[in-house]
């Protein structure tokens, strides 16, 4: 039995649990129906939750024994990129973090020569910085290193 379960089954178990949470909170805490006011804050979410639970179970049963879901190991590159950007962002701010990631990806993953890396970075980073930061005045976070300065 257990070896027939795959990631798909796990996903539908999770959506069913989510549905149950929505139903319980909708019925219990937020108010499903009141005599004077009609439907309450929990009315709509509770109904949606019920539908979700029902179809999650249907789909769960259908998924048992289906082909296993394989995740690509290449996805780890993205996970690492995102983690790197978030950590750098904490210290030096979002925009510098993204620029460093950009350079690192082109240099160490794509193995471009430095000259090309820097030209591309200046071109693209310049557009992004010019449009979002200078023109549209988006206040990007600056990170804790800068606030110490």
């Amino acid at each position: 039995m257990l070896n027939k379960l795959n990631w798909r089954c796990v996903l539908y178990i999770l959506t069913a649990i989510l549905g149950i949470i929505w139903v319980v909170l909708g019925f219990g805490t937020y108010g499903f129906w009141s005599a004077e006011e009609g439907p309450g804050a929990g009315f709509f979410p509770a109904i949606v939750g019920c539908v979700l639970v029902f179809f999650s179970i249907v789909e769960f049963i259908k998924s048992i024994g289906s082909d296993a879901v394989k995740f690509d190991k290449e996805a780890l590159y993205l996970v690492a990129s995102v983690a790197g950007i978030l950590i750098l962002n904490f210290f030096i701010g979002l925009f510098p973090a993204l620029v460093i990631y950009y350079v690192a990806w082109l240099k160490f993953v794509e193995k471009y020569p430095w000259k090309k890396v820097i030209l591309i970075t200046i071109f693209y980073g310049g557009i992004m910085y010019g449009v979002f930061s200078l023109w549209l005045q988006v206040p990007f976070p600056t990170g804790i290193l800068l606030s110490w300065l």
């Binding site: 701010g93 620029v99 200046i122 910085y129 600056t142």
Partner: peptide, 11 residues
Amino acid sequence: FLLAATAVFAQ
């Protein structure tokens, strides 16, 4: 300079 500009902008 580009990196420094972010710093100057904030400071």
